[in-house]
Nucleic acid binder design. Structure first.
Length: 466
RNA sequence: GUCCCCAUCGUCUAGCCUGGUCCAGGACACCGGCCUUUCACGCCGGCAACACCGGUUCAAAUCCGGUUGGGGACGCCA
């Protein structure tokens, strides 16, 4: 069996979005599953809209997701000579012809046809004129006027188009730049791509491309058209649905593994399994279990996966990922050991690294000013004796451990005749500034005795002042 | 409009190819409860779907046809 070769071929006209990441992932997984080659190809034949910064951003996005490529990035803009040669071959073999129709005229005809509810199609004015190549002359593919073009799609099954439905598409513009359909085919032939996995919005391009393969006498690769990802309103996913560029998810504190797992499970499944490591994804991924129907992007599920991965990622590892987010709340260069210690107290209560950094604030910064509602409710004159007692006993405590602290808190309650919650909440606000936090018995040892005493006293003073 | 694709809980999906084990399973979300020093986690339970019509068959979520609905494509964009 020949080696599997897949490719991801974005056009750098914008940032890499979820949909792009989805197809990139499927191509990557398929290649990795079969020990094949994953190629990155930049389709930048649209000079107007292509931008170098997007080429960079796309690569950065793929790197973040861990979707490494084995070849490329190739750029179509640097392969013009190859396309010219291939166009010439089509011209020479009579599979293509030159066309000097006025683009503006064509455009008005198109609009008119669409307005009348007809399928816009080129009238083939130049098909038999035998025009010679030259300035102002585009090249069109001579599509067969009869017959059908069909293929066995690896996801959708058998698909057929009447050749009559296709028209003589432009394969090279008047300025000598090839169009998408020509460039893809030439690239996929020369790069020996074996499987084309792409969004099903490309289905209608496929018969045209197959015809071009046939004109070159080359067997087309396998096609697999994956269902599109839709927004909540079931239309093509876009910004309005809250779908963001891939890198925006990184900024929001989503782990790459969460996004990969999410994207993999959208359209593909393996029984009831929801959680997949990258290794499992590579091991199990196949085209046979890719569904045919489109899926809706569900932010909630992504967050659920993210909270899962935040929980299971080893503290040291997560600490490293969290550190950049700590910088955002003003904590620069924190001690890695200290961060690793706080992680286990926060990972069950955070859905994103942004949330986690926010919840970690009190570990680094003074809890004042206290959360207004929390202070009003719990830092009351009545709580002062409890805070004093806690400070006194804490100061006398030899060893800060969960057990000793649990005992300490319970003893105070027993002596003062109060419920644990009535003691814990004022202490919590004093130490963290909020009414919700990690458990006191795990946070106190991390803050340390001195710091806790300091905060307790500050809280007592703040009650006195108010 | 024309062509193409699709159709199981609100969402992601298993099951469909190789009809019966499915009065349809899992997960997210949601709603209860338990646990509990707060918030979470966790655990237990609940709600909730085979788009519709017809056909084939002893038997259909599963096969066939149609209807409806949704999506996509119709560029000298990709």
């Amino acid at each position: 069996m020949t080696q599997v070769r897949t490719r991801f071929s974005p056009s750098p006209t914008g940032a890499l979005h979820l949909g792009g990441a989805h197809t990139a992932l499927f191509n990557w997984l398929y290649a990795r599953h079969f020990g094949g080659v994953f190629i990155l190809r930049i389709e930048d034949t649209d000079r107007e809209r292509s931008q170098e910064k997007f080429v960079e951003e796309i690569q950065e996005s793929l790197r973040w997701l861990g979707l490494n490529w084995d070849e490329g990035p190739y750029r179509q803009s640097q392969r013009l000579d190859i396309y010219h040669e291939y166009v010439k071959r089509l011209l020479d073999s009579g599979h293509a012809y030159c066309c000097d129709c006025d683009p503006e005229d064509l455009e008005t005809r198109r609009q008119a046809a669409l307005a009348k509810g007809e399928k816009p199609r080129y009238n083939r004015r130049c098909r038999e004129r035998g025009l010679a190549p030259g300035p102002g002359t585009a090249v069109r593919f001579k599509t067969p006027e009869t017959g059908t073009t069909h293929w066995q799609d690896r996801i959708k099954g058998h698909i057929a188009f009447d050749n009559q439905e296709l028209d003589d598409l432009v394969i090279m513009r008047a300025d000598g730049i090839p169009t998408y359909n020509l460039a893809v085919v030439v690239d996929d032939i020369t790069m020996r791509v074996t499987h084309i996995i792409r969004g099903d919005d490309h289905i209608s391009n496929t018969p045209r491309q197959i015809l071009i393969y046939q004109a070159y006498g080359v067997d087309p690769p396998e096609f697999a058209h994956m269902p599109l990802m839709l927004g909540k309103d079931r239309t093509k996913l876009s910004k309005r649905h809250g779908a963001l560029p891939v890198l925006a998810y990184r900024e929001q504190g989503i782990l790459p593994q969460s996004l990969n797992n999410f994207l993999a499970r959208l359209g593909w499944s393996r029984g009831d399994q929801e959680i997949f490591s990258m290794a499992e994804l590579i091991e199990y991924f196949d085209l046979d279990h890719v569904g045919k129907s489109p899926g809706v992007f569900d932010q909630e599920k992504l967050l659920w996966l993210n909270s899962h991965y935040i929980k299971v990622t080893p503290p040291r590892e997560l600490a490293a990922l969290l550190t950049p987010f700590l910088a955002a709340i003003g904590v620069e260069n924190p001690d890695p050991d200290y961060v690793a210690r706080i992680v286990p107290t926060l990972n069950k209560r955070s859905k994103t690294l942004v949330e986690m950094a926010d919840a970690a604030r009190f570990y680094f910064l003074d809890p004042r000013p206290y959360d207004e509602k929390a202070a009003k409710k719990f830092l009351t004159p009545a709580s002062v004796p409890l805070l004093r007692e806690t400070a006194a006993r804490l100061s006398a405590l030899q060893e800060l451990s969960e057990e000793s602290l649990t005992d300490l808190l319970k003893d105070i309650c027993a002596d003062k005749g109060c419920k644990l919650v009535d003691l814990a909440q004022p202490v919590r606000v004093a130490l963290t500034g909020k009414s919700a936090s990690p458990s006191l018995t795990e946070l106190i040892p991390i803050l340390g005795k001195e710091e806790c005493l300091r905060r307790l006293n500050n809280a007592i003073n703040s009650v006195a002042e108010s």
